[in-house]
C-alpha cells in the first residue's frame, strides 16, 4: 500500500525545493542588487522549509534514507511538486507572478495546517515556516502592485506573465489522492478551505493591478502524481549533477 503521509509531505517539500532552485538561478542576475538578495533570501528560506519536510518524510518512509537522498536521488516522475514552481523564471515580472501565486498558497496552507492538523511534527514545521511565508507574500504582493500599477511596459509584462501562469495557479488547491487521505485522516488540510482564503488574497491584488486574469479557467494538473512539464528535467539535471556524478560525495 502507498504511504500517503509520505506522499503528502513530499508534495510540499518538492514545491519548496524546486521553487527554491528556480529562485537561486537569479543569484547574480537580479535587476538590482537589493532584489537579487531578496530572491536568494527567499530561496534560502524555502530550502530550509524543504529540508525540514524531507527530514520528516525520510523518517516516515522508514527506509533509512536522508533528506539528501530524497532531494538528489529521485527522478522527475518521483517529484510531486505542482507544475507552477518548475516554470522558468522568464523576466522579473514572470518570477514575481509565479512567486505571488505560490506565496498566497504557502501562507494559507501553513496557517490552516497549524490549526487543523493532528500531526505534531507537521504543526511544528508549519508554525516555524508561516512567518517566513508571510514575509515572502508581503514582498511579492508589493512587487505585483508596483509592476501592475507602474509603467505601461511593466503592466504589459505582468499581464503576459498572468496569461502564461494563471492556468498553473489552481493545481496546488486541487486535491490529489494524498491530499484526500490527509484531510480524511486529520493530519492534513481541507484544500477547499485553503482555496477560499487563497483566492481572496489573489483576487484583491489582481484587481488592484487591473490585470485581466481569472482563477476560473482551465487548469493544468499532473505534478502531484509525477507528470511534469519538460522544464523539471533540466532543473534536476543541474541540481542533482554532483550527487549523480560522484555518489555520496560530501563537503
Amino acid at each position: 500500500m502507498e504511504n500517503q503521509l509520505f506522499n503528502y509531505i513530499i508534495q510540499h517539500a518538492d514545491n519548496c525545493l524546486i521553487l527554491s532552485h528556480r529562485l537561486s538561478e537569479w543569484c547574480g542576475h537580479g535587476p538590482v542588487l537589493e532584489q537579487d538578495i531578496a530572491m536568494t533570501n527567499i530561496s534560502l528560506d524555502l530550502l530550509g522549509q524543504a529540508r525540514m519536510l524531507y527530514d520528516y518524510a525520510a523518517k516516515v518512509q522508514g527506509e533509512g534514507k536522508t533528506e539528501d537522498d530524497l532531494a538528489y536521488l529521485r527522478d522527475a516522475w518521483d517529484f510531486k511538486n505542482v507544475q507552477l514552481v518548475e516554470m522558468p523564471n522568464g523576466d522579473f515580472g514572470q518570477t514575481i507572478m509565479r512567486q505571488f501565486l505560490f506565496d498566497t498558497f504557502n501562507v494559507t496552507f501553513y496557517r490552516e495546517l497549524m490549526e487543523v492538523s493532528n500531526d505534531a511534527e507537521l504543526i511544528a514545521i508549519a508554525d516555524k515556516s508561516l512567518k517566513e511565508a508571510q514575509y515572502h507574500l508581503k514582498w511579492s504582493s508589493e512587487w505585483m502592485l508596483r509592476l501592475g500599477q507602474g509603467t505601461e511596459e511593466s503592466h504589459t509584462r505582468l499581464q503576459n506573465a498572468a496569461n502564461l501562469l494563471m492556468p498553473y495557479a489552481n493545481e496546488v488547491v486541487i486535491p490529489s489522492e494524498a491530499d484526500k487521505v490527509a484531510a480524511e485522516t486529520g493530519y492534513g488540510v481541507d484544500l477547499n478551505n485553503v482555496k477560499a482564503e487563497r483566492d481572496q488574497l489573489i483576487k484583491e491584488v489582481i484587481t488592484e493591478c487591473e490585470l485581466d486574469a481569472s482563477l476560473d479557467g482551465f487548469s493544468h494538473t499532473g505534478g502531484k502524481t509525477g507528470t511534469h512539464t519538460e522544464h523539471l528535467g533540466y532543473v534536476l539535471a543541474e541540481m542533482q549533477f554532483l550527487q549523480r556524478a560522484y555518489p555520496g560525495l560530501e563537503w
Partner: peptide
C-alpha cells in the same frame, strides 16, 4: 526601509 531583505535572512 531600503529593502525587505538584507545581508542575511
Amino acid at each position: 526601509l531600503v529593502s525587505l531583505f538584507g545581508s542575511t535572512a
